[in-house]
Design a protein around this nucleic acid. Structure first.
Lengths: 180, 180
DNA sequence: GTCTATATGCGGATAGAC
DNA sequence: GTCTATCCGCATATAGAC
């Protein structure tokens, strides 16, 4: 098949960046690495992105939008059955597993992209839907085990069949909540 | 109080390094940062450590030794009641929470320190004690939620009273295993 | 859109004086 | 034990030709 006509360079840069980040980490990947992978020179990248940070932001924007919308939707739909919330949270994490894997592998990404506070916000909102506004220490612990476990599984076991993985993860997370 | 007489510079460097790593991440902390914090110059550090890597290794050695000994001891003592294993694993993680926090915040630390394979080994050994040698996907998932949740709690909720935290975390982890 | 050439700064690391 | 001075390499980023 023929190469696409034009305008795909920006997207190719983004894909090369994601690939390299996954292979060797974000901090360890320079603009030179990205340019080399594409067979162009560094300055070429600056035609498509104003700076390294600009490139990074363009990669994370979709995730931010999706998480933001998800948190808002869940809050609007409250109260929700725990199992349902856990399931949709698994789906969300699975959908963005590539970037989350990156963030897990190198959490300082969160700081570099100023995502840390947002993540805490989103997580807090979900936790409130699960365990209310005045949780005991035990509630907080169970919630952390449940939500943390879900994203861990979605990200680290993604070579297994999704549907089975989802079911097993939701079940384990639900059990960790300790409901009778 | 008077400054300590001598010989504490090495330890002061290590402490400054740990503080800065916790504040701004390992990759983002240069030898210059460390030297500045102590009010000395970079070359001074090289009198006490052969290289940056040498400094890093000196920080992680105690953790390695402790984990190695723990994994061996647990394997030797098999079979162990799950609750007991989860509890002692919590204690281990809590004991080393400063460094684990670092590793969690920036997993590439594990690669930089060649700790990744060891961690997988240790975790695998513990998992085997919990779920045997031929686990189903559901077993693997539950085990990941349980062990991951324990260390998450030990590290991220360490401002709460330890004994209560430990009890709650072990209980949540045990429940996530789904034993009847 | 992509190139060559270059500016500028910071990283780890060493030599050698005090 | 700590300093000043310095080397080297690689990072991001820009100027200006094609």
């Amino acid at each position: 098949m023929p190469r696409q006509r034009t305008g795909d360079t920006r997207a190719r840069i983004q894909q090369a960046a994601l690939d390299l980040f996954a292979e060797q980490g974000l901090q360890q990947t320079s603009l030179r690495d990205i340019a080399d992978r594409l067979g162009v020179t560094k300055p070429a990248l600056y035609y498509h992105f104003a700076s390294r940070e600009d490139l990074l932001n363009s990669l994370v924007e979709p995730l931010i939008a999706d998480f933001e919308a998800y948190a808002a939707a869940q809050q609007a739909a409250a109260p929700i059955a725990p199992r349902e919330l856990l399931g949709s949270y698994f789906d969300l994490a699975y959908r963005h597993r590539a970037l989350i894997q990156l963030a897990i592998r190198d959490l300082s990404v969160l700081h570099e992209l100023k995502l840390a506070e947002r993540f805490i916000e989103w997580r807090g909102a979900l936790a409130e839907l699960l365990i209310g506004t005045n949780p005991s220490l035990s509630d907080v612990v169970r919630c952390m085990v449940a939500l943390g476990g879900l994203s861990d599984c979605a990200v680290m076991l993604d070579h297994d069949p999704v549907s089975e993985l989802r079911e097993a993860a939701v079940e384990a997370a639900y059990d960790s909540l300790g409901r009778p």
